[in-house]
Design a protein around this nucleic acid. Structure first.
Length: 462
DNA sequence: ATAGGGTTAG
């Protein structure tokens, strides 16, 4: 029994529509609301794309509620949001608050902060926070070492991860997972040779590569466009009777498909069943995606239907891939039908789904339909993200209408209000647009907003 | 939230 999600949506709506802090406090402290960590976490996730509101909500419970005490996981969410807003002062206040409540920050907490630092272009800050974990009551171990390596690699700071790794691998006794993380990092920036080098060094140190290691290298070949090398590697994996799995097959289906080798991709897909390995939803998604890209959306939909017949439950990725395929072939209305099917299934359209259809409507010149969908998001429980705002604001410039400039300005104000930092280019386009259409007053307002944003980002630069 | 397979378009 879990009523949290439904109750959460109602409360999220309340928080989003409130304009007065005092009355929001009064509503949230209403004794009939039974606060639980799950409920709080659910609301924080729903408010993810409205950082300031999420933090306001978190702070009200933290400071104004007489009895409720936040869980460590809610603190992690709040820290994540504050760090994404580059509000590092709040991050450290919350860390201290966790300690004073005897909720220990976990390695996960530090992984979150490190990830945000890296995303903000401060990888050295990320390393520093990792090295100071023990000062915050959290011990460093191999797990957290691997996590920080992965954070750097996922942000494409592979060189930095590799150097850090070389310094500390002895102290933390790096294992197969550490090496896999580094190898995967090299593959993600298409430096397959460095991945192979890493693999070799791992073997020299007496560590045995795992199936995951081979799957990483396999993917690396395809990612770097070394299709035949990837193919040979796959055959070698099979020949050596290495127990290849569904991930291996999915990698090959996708890798062959993206370069247009549809027939070979399909052969591999058929072959896996004969080899006694069942496709997963991800395998279907890979095949459907490459059919959309390199074959036809009709054939992709045949596979989609086949997947349903076989009892698989499509997820939001499946739908998004199909919807994108349809939109790309100018079949917007069919795309919208699949969006409705998503609602009937358990996975409602997510922000990516909206971004896809909004983008294609705008590209097709149907800007009103794009805005209509945007309004639908604002009213529901799928808040627009940075991409949504960027797509819509750009679309406001195609018709060269004065009214559209006002909408662009309004969207820009709203995105800043929700904690998103527009690029300088976006500011300048909107400013130019408003000035050229005689909206000097609004332009001045935007200019003030821009300098406020500039000051904020400077203030938070540590 | 210690590692591997599906998500834009430019």
């Amino acid at each position: 029994m879990n009523a949290a999600p439904a109750a959460a949506s109602t409360l999220t709506g309340l928080i989003l529509t409130s304009t007065n802090r005092q009355s929001l406090i009064k509503s949230l402290l209403c004794p009939s609301i039974y606060w639980t960590p799950l409920l709080v976490d659910t609301i924080l996730k729903q408010l993810w794309n409205h950082g300031p509101k999420a933090l306001q909500f978190f702070h009200i419970l933290l400071h104004n509620h007489p009895t409720y005490v936040h869980s460590a996981s809610s603190f992690d969410h709040a820290i994540d949001i504050a760090a994404r807003l580059r509000n590092y002062a709040t991050v450290f206040t919350l860390l201290d608050r966790m300690r004073s409540l005897r909720l220990h920050p976990t390695p996960k907490t530090f992984a979150i902060i490190a990830e945000r630092y890296v995303a903000a272009g401060k990888p050295d800050k990320a390393l520093k926070i990792f090295l100071s974990m023990h000062q915050h009551g959290c011990l460093q171990d191999l797990h957290s070492f691997n996590t920080i390596l992965d954070v750097l690699c996922k942000a494409r700071r592979v060189e930095k991860a590799w150097n850090f790794f070389k310094v500390l691998r002895g102290r933390f006794q790096a294992d197969v997972i550490s090496y896999n993380i580094i190898a995967n990092g090299w593959c993600s920036i298409k430096r397959t040779n460095m991945a192979l080098e890493t693999l070799k060094e791992m073997v020299d140190r007496g560590l045995n590569p795992s199936l995951t290691t081979y799957n990483i290298i396999l993917k690396g070949y395809f990612k770097a466009g070394q299709i035949e090398e990837g193919w040979k590697f796959f055959l070698e994996m099979k020949r050596r009777k290495c127990e290849i799995d569904v991930v291996t097959y999915t990698t090959v289906v996708h890798g062959l498909g993206v370069v247009g080798e549809i027939k070979r991709a399909r052969n591999v897909f058929d072959e896996m069943v004969n080899d006694g390995v069942l496709p997963s939803v991800a395998t279907y998604n890979a095949l459907i995606q490459v059919l959309c890209m390199k074959d036809s959306v009709e054939n992709a939909i045949l596979v989609f239907e086949e997947m349903l017949r076989k009892g698989y439950a499509p997820n939001s990725t499946t739908y998004n891939v199909v919807i994108r395929g349809l939109c790309h072939r100018e079949q917007m209305e069919r795309g919208m039908e699949y969006m409705d099917r998503m609602r009937d299934d358990d996975c409602g359209p997510n922000v990516q789904t909206y971004n896809i259809v909004i983008r294609y409507f705008c590209n097709a010149g149907e800007i009103e339909r794009g805005l209509e969908l945007f309004e639908k998001m604002s009213g529901g429980n799928c808040l627009p993200n940075l991409d949504t705002y960027n797509v819509l604001i750009s679309a406001m410039f195609v018709r060269k209408r004065s009214d559209d400039m006002l909408v662009a300005g309004k969207l820009l104000v709203e995105m800043v209000d929700r904690g998103f930092m527009p690029r300088r280019l976006t500011f300048n386009r909107v400013l130019d647009g408003l000035l050229l259409t005689g909206n000097q007053g609004f332009a001045k307002e935007i200019l003030r907003l821009q300098s406020k944003c500039g000051r904020l980002s400077k203030q938070f630069k540590l």
